[in-house]
Amino acid sequence: MKGQARRWSAFDDDVLRQLHANGRGVAYIAAFMVCAQCTVHRRARRLGLTFDEKHQWTPAEDAVLRARYPDEPTADIARDLGLNVGRVHQRANKLGLSKSDTFYASDKAGRIQRGRQDPRMVAHQFKKGLVPANKGLRRPGYAPGRMAQTQFKKGEMSGAAQHNYVPIGTEKVDPKRKVLMRKVTDDPSIFPVKRWRPVHVIVWEAAHGPVPAGHIVIFKKGRKSFVADEITVDRLELVTLAENMRRNSYHTNFPPEVVQVIQLKGALNRKINKLSREQKQ
C-alpha cells in the first residue's frame, strides 16, 4: 500500500530479472510491478542488475512498431512499450517508418485541419462584433502609472550603446576588409555595420558618381593608404568583379609549382579538419 515499503518476494525478484533480461526499462518495470521507479532501481542494485540507457530493441518490439507507428500516436506506443517518445521516434526513423496520410488527416495527429470547422479552432475564433479588450488603450502618449518615467526618450542611449557611440565622420580601419572606413549616418533603421563606408569608395563616388553594378573600386597597385588625406582619385581605379578576382587569384600570381603546393596544402587542411570533427563526435 501507499506509504509502506514494498515487500519483495523471490517471485518478484524473478520477474525483475526476466524483465531486465528482456531489455525493459525502469519505467516499464515499475508500471508492470505497480511500484515506484526508485524502488525498482534500489532492488535492481541489490540484485546486481544495471540498466543501460540505450534500450536494446527486440524483434518483437520492432514488429509492434512497424504495425502501429504509421497510424497511432507515438505517445500511446511509447507508453505500452515502457519507453519515452523520443526513443520510439528514433527507432522508427532508423527503421524507415513514417506516419501515414490517414493519421495526419485524423484528430489523433493533434493538428487543426484546414478546410473544416475544427471544434478547437471554432472555440478560439474571434467572433464578428466582439470588441478587443485593449481597444482604445494603445493610443499615442498612453503611459499609465510610472511608464512615462521609465520609457526610452527619442534619441536617448544608455549602457553599451552610449559607451560605444562615435559621431558621424569617425574613421577606423576595418580589420577584415583592410581599408579605412568612415561613419556616414546615425540612422537607427540601418544596420550598424552599414552605417560605415570605405573612404576610397566615398572619394571615387564624389568624383565619378555611384559605382556601377558588377564593378568595384580598388587601389592601384602599391598605392594603398590608411590615411584619409592621402586617399585621392588618382590612387584609385574601377574594375569589374571578374577582373578583381583574376588579379587576386593565386593561379595568375604564382608559378605552377607554387600553385600545386597551395592546392595540396588546402587538401591536407581539409583532411585534418575532417578527422578532428570525427574525433570530437
Rank of each mutant, 00 (worst) to 15 (best):
G3L: 08
A5R: 00
F11T: 10
D12R: 01
D12H: 00
L16M: 01
L16C: 02
Q18L: 14
Q18K: 08
H20A: 13
N22V: 02
G23E: 05
R24C: 11
I29A: 02
A30Y: 05
A31G: 09
F32Q: 10
V40M: 01
V40H: 03
V40I: 07
H41N: 13
R43I: 03
A44T: 02
R46W: 06
L47E: 03
L47M: 13
G48Q: 01
G48N: 02
F51P: 00
D52C: 10
E53K: 15
Q56R: 15
T58D: 04
P59S: 05
E61M: 07
L65N: 03
R66P: 09
A67F: 12
R68V: 12
A75K: 15
I77S: 05
L81G: 02
G82L: 00
G82Q: 06
N84Q: 12
R87V: 09
V88S: 07
H89M: 06
H89R: 15
H89Q: 14
Q90R: 15
A92M: 06
N93M: 12
N93Q: 12
K94S: 15
L95C: 11
L95Y: 07
S100K: 06
S100I: 08
D101A: 14
T102N: 14
Y104E: 13
A105E: 12
A109R: 14
A109P: 13
A109T: 13
G110W: 05
Q117A: 13
R120W: 06
M121W: 12
M121N: 15
H124C: 13
F126Q: 14
G129Q: 08
L130K: 15
L130F: 12
V131M: 08
P132Q: 00
G136N: 09
L137D: 08
R138W: 07
R138A: 08
P144F: 10
G145W: 01
R146C: 07
A148Q: 04
T150P: 01
F152N: 11
G155Q: 02
E156W: 08
E156T: 04
E156F: 12
M157Y: 10
G159T: 07
A160I: 15
A161P: 01
A161E: 14
H163T: 14
Y165A: 11
P167M: 10
I168E: 11
E171S: 04
K176Y: 03
K178L: 09
V179T: 09
R182I: 07
V184F: 05
D187V: 04
P188W: 06
P188V: 06
S189V: 05
V193R: 12
K194A: 15
R195V: 02
W196H: 07
W196C: 08
R197Y: 07
P198V: 12
A207L: 06
P210M: 07
V211Y: 09
P212K: 11
P212H: 09
G214H: 04
G214Y: 05
G214I: 03
I218A: 06
F219V: 09
R223G: 01
F226V: 11
F226G: 04
D229I: 01
D229E: 15
E230G: 04
E230W: 04
T232M: 02
R235S: 01
E237D: 05
E237R: 13
E237P: 00
L238T: 00
T240E: 04
E243N: 06
E243P: 03
N244S: 10
N248A: 10
Y250A: 09
P255V: 15
P256W: 02
V258G: 00
V259M: 08
L264K: 14
K265Y: 10
I272N: 14
K274W: 03
S276H: 12
S276I: 15
Q279M: 09
